[in-house]
Design a protein around this nucleic acid. Sequence first.
DNA 1: ATGTGAAAAACTTTCGAAAGTATGGCAATA
DNA 2: TATTGCCATACTTTCGAAAGTTTTTCACAT
Lengths: 180, 180
Amino acid sequence: MSVSPVREALARLVATGLVTAEHNLGYRVAPLSADDLKDLVDTRVREEAWALRQSIGNGDEMWEGRILASLHVLERLPRENPDDQTLYNEAWEKRHSDFHHALISECGSKLTLAFCENLRDLNDRYRRLSLVLEGGARNAATEHRAIAEAAIERDAPRAIEALSSHYLATAQYLLETYAE
Amino acid sequence: MSVSPVREALARLVATGLVTAEHNLGYRVAPLSADDLKDLVDTRVREEAWALRQSIGNGDEMWEGRILASLHVLERLPRENPDDQTLYNEAWEKRHSDFHHALISECGSKLTLAFCENLRDLNDRYRRLSLVLEGGARNAATEHRAIAEAAIERDAPRAIEALSSHYLATAQYLLETYAE
DNA sequence: ATGTGAAAAACTTTCGAAAGTATGGCAATA
DNA sequence: TATTGCCATACTTTCGAAAGTTTTTCACAT
């Protein structure tokens, strides 16, 4: 493989914020920082809270169905990689992403959805790091179910509260661990 | 100039959403549409309203100074290009962008600021089109001053109302013109 | 020891051409 | 006339090398 396609791929990663570029100095993995994580989680909670509220207002029974379907297949897979505990279970990661997307998918704004997807990609690096550190102590499955149920019952405040604390818990753990 | 740097530039435009790409079919100018514009303006009003409110809460006297300075230099330049009425006055465009950035610059979230900048870039195509059509009938200068004054007086609701209607007016004109 | 400057090495970017892919035209067939 | 399949053409992507830039090395002078 030549440099051209690699550079194209890097250019895309720069656009998402996962990689930084400086002219004549090449590309670098974007650094992680506590400030970045705080901004990331706060912004994500704000955006997804709005998107979830809109979806609860707009979504029909098909939307409810998609939430239940994505939650179901998510619960049928272990979060850990069965073959190698040090690796991620990419299939679970995909389904996890799909579940969260389903929740906000009926918000009515493509731009907001694209932004949320971008924020998820940025956040994933921190979340995966947290996963390694806490070793799956928290029960994410219970939290997912709580969010889904509140959303389907059209209880926006409860759904948003459940989603927010779901996002905040992971970040909080990481921030406290690194504060030491 | 070779294809490589052109492709890199196009890749960046794809990232902002101004250009679309399809594998083996090349790049295209992203289409304009009424739906896109509605989403764009709604999202932008929501994001900038939040960012302005935060800035009004966080901003110090230096922030106030930057708003006044950017408004001042904006008012000292004509919106139209003095040499050719069919061209834009790029210097004015730059100062206009700087003014709007100054208003929200103290919101405290880099991610939100980056998103707002992206939305501004996307919106500019529609705004410039509107500029040609309405021929500068509206008095943007008065609106800018109203936003700045409300912001500096720390009147968040009034500032947000002024900013929102400033953004909505341009879009509304364009949507109505094309609805015919 | 410390700093300076030139030369070499390593790396990034750009280039022109080759390889690969889609589109349009044309002849053969129904 | 309409449809199919093939070929030529135009375009997009990828390649390997050349050109350009930054970093390191090392001799020399302070």
